[in-house]
């Protein structure tokens, strides 16, 4: 049976709202700008630079998703694959 509770907004719908998206972007921007105020003492040089953790987090997550999609395109199989 489909959900008929049209009047009860779920958190996802709320989070998908434009205002909250703007707020999210603002939070992300503030997080990066905080690097101007916080001194990082990196061990490798690059890890002490401005916005490192931000771009690194995004890039590594993107790379892992691509890897997952590549693995999935080769190795996904139906649920009953081993049933026989």
């Amino acid at each position: 049976m489909r959900d008929t509770r049209k009047t009860s907004p779920t958190l996802m719908k709320t989070l998908a709202g434009k205002d909250l998206r703007k707020l999210g972007l603002l939070v992300l921007a503030v997080l990066v700008l905080l690097d101007l105020a916080v001194a990082h003492h990196g061990y490798f040089g690059i890890d002490g630079t401005f916005g490192f953790a931000a771009w690194f987090g995004a890039l590594s997550c993107f790379a892992l998703i691509l890897l997952a999609l590549a693995v999935g395109s080769i190795l996904r199989a139906p649920e009953g694959t081993y049933d026989d």
Binding site: V38, G51, F52, A53, G57, I65
Partner: peptide
């Protein structure tokens, strides 16, 4: 530094 690095890492990963 630790706190900011970890929150940045997770927040931007969540964005992706």
């Amino acid at each position: 530094s630790h706190i900011l690095v970890q929150i940045q890492l997770l927040a931007f990963a969540a964005l992706v």
